[in-house]
């Protein structure tokens, strides 16, 4: 047992080393991981709440502690402190108070309501990608939407994989009546009209990130199931399975210890495509108005606004560009992964 694990480990290691040599994919991977990692710290980087405020000798951290009334910092506003203005007035007044703003001090939600924000501001040094139809900063929204899109795709794919491997694997491995029965269930299930499911659910509760994932998984797991079923079906007839069984291994062990590692290649090669599918799905849902509730930043919503204002090119190019860069990176990774996982060498043989 231990020996076998070592072997598969070293195979993985080999594949990883191979992957590293494929520069395009490798760097895309590194970049994407870093960006996605960073995107979890977006509130620290892109926000209109100050990181640190030093007011009359006392330090506070609005970014962590949340809501601070403006009056706490001597600002005459009825609601939350407006940190950008605070900073400016302290600077101008030569006050001892100071504060540190995030690198890009605009939140994805603040619109024309906040003094100074204008709608359809073209890209400039303050608003890198301009503002949208209600005066919200497009760059800021783009970045937050990146996090949501990738998270959506990742969670969705993971869930699909778990379901797909469990159900599809069992179908392929067990075969017979079990397979036949589940095939029918799946066929019936796949006729579920997703839009209706969304309409029904969203008339009762407000769609959230996980609700959308749940709804999407309901219909989406089927694709993966088919793939896994075919894979397990094929592997099952191979000699090593018979050997393992004859050695008295349980079905469960055979499935997950023996077949699964062999079915890993399609699983992993399929992964980036599934991510892309997830991202595109969310864009489509948002565009149709069945996605995340407003004002959640989303690429689909940005694209929609952009298309209504074709003359304001930045609003079209921003989401399309973001979509393109992300998809391209995922694609490069996909290429590299496939190559790394394939034992064969694709050189021209002669």
């Amino acid at each position: 047992m231990a020996e076998q694990q070592q072997i598969s480990l070293s195979i993985l290691k080999k594949r990883w080393l191979k992957f590293k040599t494929l520069k395009r994919g490798y760097y895309s991977f590194i970049l994407l991981v870093i960006l996605y990692g960073l995107s979890w710290f977006l509130p620290l980087l892109i926000n209109n709440r100050a990181l640190v405020v030093s007011y009359e000798g006392e330090l506070s951290f609005p970014i962590v502690s949340g809501y601070h009334a403006g009056t706490e910092f001597g600002q005459d506003v009825p609601g939350e402190a407006i940190y950008r203005e605070l900073k400016q007035s302290w600077k101008q007044g030569g006050s001892d108070n100071w504060l540190i703003m995030p690198l890009y001090p605009y939140s994805p939600y603040e619109d024309i309501t906040v003094q100074g924000n204008k709608m359809y501001d073209p890209p400039s040094r303050t608003h890198w990608l301009g503002t949208d139809n209600t005066g919200r900063d497009v760059f800021s929204r783009l970045c937050y939407a990146f996090n949501i899109s990738i998270s959506f795709a990742l969670v969705l794919t993971t869930l699909n994989y778990i379901l797909g491997v469990l159900i599809g694997g069992s179908m392929g491995y067990l075969g017979g009546k079990f397979d036949l029965f589940f095939q029918r269930i799946i066929e019936i299930w796949s006729s579920l009209p997703m839009l209706f499911v969304i309409i029904i659910i969203s008339s009762i509760i407000r769609p959230s990130f996980f609700l959308l994932i749940f709804i999407y998984t309901i219909v989406n797991w089927i694709g993966m199931t088919y793939l896994m079923r075919a894979e397990f079906y094929r592997e099952k007839s191979k000699d090593y399975v018979a050997a393992a069984l004859s050695m008295g291994q349980t079905n469960f062990k055979v499935m997950f210890k023996h077949i699964l590692p062999n079915a890993l290649v399609p699983i992993i090669t399929y992964f980036p495509f599934s991510i892309i599918g997830g991202i595109s799905a969310l864009v489509g849902l948002d565009y149709l108005g069945f996605g995340m509730p407003p004002p959640t930043p989303s690429w689909g919503q940005l694209l929609e606004v952009g298309l209504q204002n074709i003359s304001k090119a930045w609003m079209v190019f921003a989401p399309v560009g973001a979509l393109f860069v992300t998809l391209l990176m995922v694609m490069f990774i996909a290429e590299a992964v496939r190559e790394a996982f394939d034992p064969k060498v694709y050189s021209r043989l002669r």
């Binding site: 609601g79 969203s202 996605g291 509730p293 407003p294």
Partner: peptide
């Protein structure tokens, strides 16, 4: 949505939480 999100922000400033959903 463009007609209501600014209102949401206006209310938010004064502590009134108006959640928006599509239906």
């Amino acid at each position: 949505d463009y007609m209501v999100t600014p209102v949401q922000q206006m209310l938010k400033e004064y502590g009134v939480d108006m959640q928006i959903k599509y239906e």
